[in-house]
Measured scan of single mutants.
Amino acid sequence: DIIVVALYDYEAIHHEDLSFQKGDQMVVLEESGEWWKARSLATRKEGYIPSNYVARVDS
C-alpha cells in the first residue's frame, strides 16, 4: 500500500472529497492526475485528496 502523510489541513469542497488535518496518514487507493482517492487511517473514510497536499511515507 502507498501511505501518505498530510502536509497541510484540507477542508473538503465537494461531497466526494476527504477532509484531513496536517499529520494525518492515508492509504492511496487510486492515483489519477492531481486528485487521488484515499482512505484515512484514523477515520477509515474514503474520498478524493489533492495530491500536492500530501507526501509519501517511506516504509
Rank of each mutant, 00 (worst) to 15 (best):
Q21K: 15
Q25C: 13
H14I: 05
K37L: 15
I13T: 12
R44D: 13
V54C: 06
A6C: 07
A12K: 06
K22F: 05
D24G: 02
A12M: 04
E11N: 11
R44Y: 13
G23N: 05
A55S: 10
P50T: 02
R44C: 15
H14K: 11
N52Q: 11
N52C: 13
E16A: 11
L7M: 09
W36P: 02
F20S: 00
Y53V: 04
Y53T: 03
D24T: 05
G47S: 01
L41I: 11
V57N: 07
R39L: 11
Y10Q: 01
D24N: 04
H15Y: 12
E11W: 10
W35T: 08
D58S: 12
A42L: 11
D9N: 10
V57I: 14
G23V: 01
E34G: 09
I2Y: 15
D17P: 02
R56F: 12
H14P: 02
G23K: 02
S19N: 06
P50E: 01
E16T: 14
S32Y: 14
Y48A: 04
D17T: 08
L41A: 05
R56C: 09
I49E: 00
E11Y: 11
E11V: 14
P50S: 05
W36T: 07
V27E: 08
I3R: 07
A55M: 14
V4F: 09
Y10E: 00
V28H: 00
Q21S: 13
E11P: 06
D24H: 06
D9K: 06
K37Q: 07
K37T: 06
V54W: 02
G33Q: 05
E34F: 15
L41S: 06
I49H: 01
A38G: 04
I49A: 01
P50G: 03
Q25N: 08
S40W: 02
A12C: 04
L7C: 09
I49W: 00
F20I: 03
T43C: 05
W36I: 13
N52V: 09
A38F: 01
L7T: 03
P50I: 03
D1R: 12
A6L: 01
E34D: 13
D58H: 13
E16C: 15
T43W: 03
A38W: 02
A38H: 01
A42P: 05
E31S: 15
Y48W: 15
V4S: 01
W36H: 05
L18A: 00
L29W: 06
Y53E: 01
G23S: 03
V54Y: 02
K45V: 08
K37H: 10
D1S: 13
L7R: 04
E46F: 07
D58F: 11
K45T: 07
L29R: 05
R39T: 07
Q21F: 11
A42D: 09
R44T: 10
A6S: 03
D58K: 09
A38Q: 01
V28F: 03
E16P: 04
D58R: 07
S59H: 11
V5Q: 06
E16I: 08
Q25Y: 15
D58N: 13
A38S: 04
D17H: 15
E11F: 11
H15G: 12
A38T: 04
Y48F: 11
S32H: 15
G47L: 01
Y8V: 08
R39F: 12
D9V: 04
D9Y: 04
I2R: 11
H14S: 13
K37D: 02
D9A: 08
T43S: 11
R56M: 09
Y10P: 00
E46T: 12
V27P: 00
G23C: 08
G47P: 00
L18N: 01
E46C: 10
H14F: 09
E16Y: 14
V54S: 00
E34M: 14
H15R: 11
A12Y: 02
Q21C: 14
V5W: 05
V5S: 04
S40M: 15
Y10C: 04
E16K: 10
S40P: 04
S19H: 05
D24Q: 07
K37V: 09
Q25K: 15
V4Y: 12
V4M: 05
T43H: 05
D17F: 15
K22S: 07
W36F: 13
A42R: 15
W36C: 09
S59K: 09
R56I: 11
E11S: 10
L41F: 07
K45D: 08
I13P: 07
A6R: 00
E30F: 10
E16R: 14
V5D: 01
D9T: 09
K22N: 04
V54L: 03
E30N: 11
V5F: 08
K45I: 08
Y10A: 01
L18Q: 01
E34V: 12
D58M: 11
Y48C: 13
S40C: 10
H15M: 12
Y53L: 13
L18H: 02
S51P: 10
V57Y: 10
W35S: 07
A12V: 02
H15V: 14
E11G: 06
R39M: 14
Y8K: 11
Y48I: 07
Y8S: 07
S19V: 04
E11M: 11
G47I: 01
M26T: 01
A42M: 10
